[in-house]
Structures are given as structure tokens and as C-alpha cells.
Design a protein around this nucleic acid. Structure first.
Lengths: 333, 333
DNA sequence: ATGAAAGCGCTAACAT
DNA sequence: ATGTTAGCGCTTTCAT
């Protein structure tokens, strides 16, 4: 493999000069510069990243912490973030994390070893040691889709959004509304909270029993949650709020299998507005988070922290939108 | 940040000894070993990866080349691969590549700079320089879901699988069958080829006009493709074969919007068996690729190449399965 | 404008 | 069993 010395030797110059050319520094004869550039082109030379990052003590890499079982919303979000990061000249390292402690520890260790320039979290880690390290190392960080005290955060008002979703159902005349949410992430609780608030505000009585918390936000557990609701004898309902679109998709599957039609018999609203939501039958009514805006702001905020030195700790709350499609309709009287 | 010298100093030993402990080498007093281990634990020391990879001339990292717009099948596949790679002690670096040449060049450059120990390709790169470099550098590589001459490959027989899918339709009594496929990847052509073969073998006449090739394998382009078929006056059909499940989902959406029922009016079969396929309404009949097996074999094959030195170039063709669900049914007479 | 030299953190060959 | 030393490929003073 060709290295900087090889180039220098072939050009009859010193590695320093070559280095200057590579890094676009001033103080190098333009003829020599061209000559070196040509040589680099010919040999296909690319600087060794490890060596570079060792002396510079940074890696031009940012780590994205993401759940191992990322859903489609997160998938879209990290693609956007990755693209923006790329435009700022960073590479992206993914840290897939599961719910177990071991995985979180491994993530922390890797974070230390990799010397990333910054971190973006799309996944809530439980272990406080993680946050302590970040704080102690003064590592630039931004959390997206959730917040952590003291860190920059980009997210929507989950509670308010959920409340709006449920309000939509209520305005349609529904009052016997069920919910499927999940545990493991803050947003599951927040979305359930919004559900309760909407009901309360509309003076509709409710019991805790009307919401199930399932372990994962997947279609599979959407089915599971819906069945669980049936087992709880919750048969007398006309609407369902699912904490994610995937959950909604699974629930609708069970409803269909039971001969319950959506939206004729029950209205369903999801959350996230994942890509397939508008291809489903029926097209899913859902809450749309501002994906591109969120991704862009996340990348930008981190970049500013890395370059500007500070500017951390601020929270940016983005607007969401209720997308009314075909899975909800007015209660037939 | 604490480094190996700090640990050595605190322990009153040399960096070599610490290094030996870190790397689990023999020839170190067990008391000292424990002492060092304790120190590492306390300080939270983690070896600097850049330094390590520089002297070792390898990175313990493998690169996964994947389309920027990866679909759900690819998403599941790379998750599995990542997990297996992890169990072999490798980290994973993702190279998201788009269709343009610039992106491919960037991928190649990064590959050179990162000193990855091996490469897994889930995406076909056009630029031959890419393959030339890999070959010249004798970089371990395995391609999954497609093949490239001379490289290890793990894939199913795309043509045969598609033929089976179409045969299923034919056996159900269908003969006026349409297809939506895509360009950009070899499998799009192969799947179309299987379609033609099945028709030919069953002595059903066909024209090229019955298959559309769309630019991307997404639900959005599934809609586009279906509409295009309608524009071509292809109204008189009873079945559709889509080259991916996403394409099928988009097509079904258009069909529904036109008042054409699936499967009562037209049967649809997809390809890939992505997660939501069985949550769709109707549940999608599709070809299932052996995801876990594929992922495992891909990781294992690469690992063997990296450690064993050779063993490259072999092709592993995995079995697929036709999953019959609700989107296909016998032609009503 | 250019080169020589030092050093980033680590491992491995060589001494002891 | 342990320490000393050299060197991986790069950037960056410091001279010139």
C-alpha cells in the first residue's frame, strides 16, 4: 500500500510538503503542488485514516447510537442525518444497541476507543455511566427524538402530539378509545400520557386498563397488544391509538382477522408517518414528525458543537403534523 | 484521556506488560495481571483504536457496502450480518452508496483510507476500478444477494425463484400476467428473465410490453409502475408479479384505488418476504430468501477469508421458498 | 517555501 | 517474566 513517504520519494520532496498539499495548506510552490497532486491521482494514494486520526487526536467521525431493532422512522431519520453529516465532512459510525446492559457497556467502550468527534443518540441508554463519560469527556452530543437533561435535544412535543391524535378521534365522536404503547423508551410513556390527557380534557372517563404496554414497537407486538386488549375484555370500543405506525399495522391485522373493519367499525391512528403508512389499506391516519428538518437540525447542531466548541444543552422542539388519511372516520350513530 | 503509559506508570510496570495483559498474552505474572486488570477497570481505560490499528496494520473492522436507499430486506440482512460479524470480533463500517459515480468513488477512497479487514457487498457497484482495487489489494470480500466473477458470493437462484413464483400463478390458472421490475441491479433483470422463462415454458405468449422497469424498488415506484402498465393499455390481466415486496405494495395500492380487488380480481406475488408482508391486507404471497442463513454464511465466509488467508471465489447458492399467503388465488372461471 | 525531527498510542522483536 | 526499543503513517513545530 502506497503511503506518504512513497509519494514524497517519487516526487523527490519531503513528506512534509506532501502533507501540506494533502491538507491544502499554503506555503507550497504551485508547480510542486500540481506535481504531487498528479502523483496522488496516479497512484490512487489515500491517507491512512488511523495515522491521521492518531496525530490529530480526532477521527472526523461521529457515532450514531441507534436501537438494534430500529424502526422505519428511525431508519429514515438516520439516513438523513448521515447525509448531512457527510456534507460537513464527517463519517458515520453506527452503534447498534440492544436493551441489555452488556450491549450498552460495549457501546460505551467502543465510544472511548474510537475517538469519535461527537455523538448523536437516537436511542435512550439506561446506564448513567454512559452520560457521565460523555459529560466528563466534554464530548459534543445531541439527542434526537428524546431529551436528556443537559444535552442538546431535537424532538417534537410527544405528549401534545398524542393528545392531538386522540383529540382528532374524540372530535370524530369517539369516546371508547383504546391504546397500544410500549415501554423501554420515554416516548412510550409520553404518548400514553397524551392519550390520558386528551381523554381527561374531554371529560371522558378511562381506566389504565385501556392501554397495553408491549415490549417492542413492532407490527408483531401490535398484534400481540391488540390480542391482549381483547383478553382484557375490551371489546366495546370504536377507536384505537397506536404509539407507532408499526404497532398500528399489527393491530389492524388482528382487527381484520376478527372481522372488524377499519375504519367502518373502528378508527385507528398511528404515530411517525413511516413510508408505507400511505400505502396501507386503509391509508393510515398518523402523526408526522418533521423527518428532514429533524435530521438536518440534528447534524447541524452537532457540527456547531464540534466546531464552535460550545452551544450545547439547548433544546429544539419541532412542529409535528396530524396527517388525516383513511383509517379514521366519524363515529356512525 | 488515559492511555497505556498512564496505566503502566500507575502500576509501576512497563507498557509492554500492560499490552500483554490487554491482549491476553501468556508470560505475565498472574498477580501483576490482576493488578493491571483492576487498574484498567478503575480508570475505564480502553485502548486507542487508531494506534492499535496502525501498528497491527489492520482495523478489526469490516466494511459493508449497501445502497443508500436500502430496502427492508437489506435492512434485515445487514442487521444479521452485523451481529455475526460482532461475534467474530469485528466492528462494522457502513458505506452507503448511491447510483452516481461520485458516490462510488467516495466509497472506494474510504475503503482505502479505513484499512478495513474485509468487505461485504450488498450493493452492486458499477465502477470496475472498485473491483480492481479489491483484487489488487487482495482484500477479503464476499458479495451477498448477487455475484461478481471471481468473488465469493452468497445468493439464491433469482431466475429460478422468479420462475417458481410465476409458475405458481400459472398453476392457479392465470395466463395474462404482468410484471413490475427495476433496473440498476442485476437481480431486476434476472427476476424478469425468470418471468419470461416461466411463460415460455408454459407456452403462454407474451410481449416485452408486459413488464415495466422502474428506477427504484420502492412502493412509490410500485405505484408508478402499475400506472405505467395501465397507460400501456394493459388492462386485461389477472395476475401481477412484482420484483420486490415494496413494488408489490405500491402496485396493490393503485389496484385498490382503481377498484380492482386483490386477490379476487388480480393475484399478486412479491419477492423478498419483508417483515410487513404478512401484515398487509391481503397478506402477501412472496418468495422468501433465507435471511438468517444468508447473513450467517456471509459473515462466516468473510471471516474465513480473513483468517484463513484464502478460500475466496466460491459461490454459495441458497434455497429460497415460495410463501403462499392471501394475495394469490385460483382464477375464477 | 521546504526539510528534519519529534511524537501521537500502541505492539512486537529483542534483550535480559 | 519483564523492560527497552523501534516503528506503524501521519502532522507539526522548528530550522533553514
Amino acid at each position: 500500500m502506497v503511503n506518504i513517504k512513497d509519494i514524497a520519494k517519487q516526487a523527490g520532496m519531503s513528506p512534509s510538503t506532501v502533507s501540506r498539499v494533502i491538507n491544502g495548506k499554503k506555503h507550497v510552490n504551485s508547480v510542486k503542488r500540481k506535481q504531487i497532486l498528479k502523483l496522488i491521482e496516479e497512484t490512487g494514494y489515500v491517507p491512512n485514516k488511523a495515522a491521521r486520526s492518531m496525530v490529530l487526536r480526532r477521527s472526523f467521525t461521529v457515532g450514531i447510537v441507534i436501537p438494534d431493532t430500529f424502526n422505519m422512522f428511525q431508519r429514515q431519520l438516520f439516513s438523513i442525518i448521515e447525509r448531512h453529516l457527510d456534507s460537513f465532512g464527517y463519517h458515520t459510525l453506527f452503534f447498534f444497541v440492544t436493551f441489555d446492559d452488556q450491549s450498552e457497556d460495549a457501546c460505551l467502550n467502543r465510544l472511548k476507543a474510537e475517538k469519535v468527534d461527537g455523538v448523536i443518540m437516537l436511542h435512550e441508554i439506561k446506564n448513567p455511566a454512559f452520560y457521565d463519560y460523555i459529560t466528563a469527556a466534554a464530548l459534543p452530543i445531541v439527542t434526537a427524538t428524546f431529551r436528556y437533561p443537559g444535552f442538546s435535544a431535537i424532538h417534537v412535543n410527544e405528549e401534545q402530539a398524542s393528545k392531538d391524535a386522540v383529540m382528532h378521534l374524540i372530535n370524530l365522536g369517539h369516546s371508547r378509545i383504546l391504546m397500544i404503547s410500549g415501554d423501554g423508551f420515554t416516548f412510550g410513556r409520553q404518548r400514553a400520557e397524551g392519550f390520558f390527557q386528551a381523554l381527561t380534557e374531554a371529560s371522558i372517563s378511562w381506566e389504565e386498563n385501556r392501554v397495553v404496554f408491549v415490549p417492542h414497537y413492532t407490527a408483531e407486538f401490535g398484534m400481540y397488544g391488540m390480542r391482549e386488549l381483547f383478553l382484557r375484555e375490551q371489546r366495546n370500543f370504536t377507536a384505537l391509538f397506536a404509539a407507532t405506525d408499526e404497532l398500528a399495522i399489527g393491530a389492524i391485522r388482528v382487527l381484520n382477522d376478527e372481522g372488524i373493519r377499519v375504519p367502518q367499525d373502528v378508527s385507528v391512528v398511528g404515530f411517525d408517518d413511516i413510508e408505507i403508512a400511505e400505502y396501507m389499506y386503509p391509508r393510515l391516519t398518523t402523526i408526522s414528525q418533521p423527518l428532514s428538518d429533524m435530521g438536518e437540525k440534528t447534524a447541524l447542531t452537532l457540527h456547531r458543537q464540534i466546531t464552535g466548541g460550545k452551544g450545547g444543552g439547548k433544546e429544539q422542539i419541532l412542529p409535528y403534523k396530524l396527517i388525516i388519511r383513511e383509517s379514521t372516520r366519524a363515529l356512525a350513530r
